[in-house]
């Protein structure tokens, strides 16, 4: 099937809301992070949302690091 349309793909095929809830923005150690649930207890850092270059050098929050949900305020309540 080929659709000839000017409409964006997201409008024609909406993504499941599940994929949106998988990623969340949290604040950890004073830095905003985009995290993804990796397992029941941990989240994995996807992206650092900060303009301070020093935050990108902090090894506790570098992308790929696993952070336990208990250490992030407000997140454990959602799980």
């Amino acid at each position: 099937m080929i659709l000839y349309t000017t409409m964006p793909q997201e409008l024609i095929y909406p993504t499941e809301s599940e994929s949106f809830t998988k990623q969340q923005t949290v604040t950890y150690q004073g830095v905003s992070l985009l995290v993804e649930l990796s397992d029941a207890q941990n989240v994995q850092v996807i992206r650092i949302l900060s303009s301070d270059p020093q935050h990108y050098l902090d090894e506790r929050i570098c992308p790929g690091t696993k952070i336990s949900c208990a250490s992030i305020e407000g997140l454990s309540a959602n799980l």
Binding site: S51, Q54, L57, E59
Partner: peptide, 22 residues
């Protein structure tokens, strides 16, 4: 860390950065 991402971090500088990056 190496298992998680395949890279390690550069050492951290102590001072606050006066130039920010977007």
């Amino acid at each position: 860390k190496i298992q998680q991402l395949g890279q390690t971090n550069v050492p951290q500088l102590s001072s606050d950065s006066k130039i920010h990056c977007l």
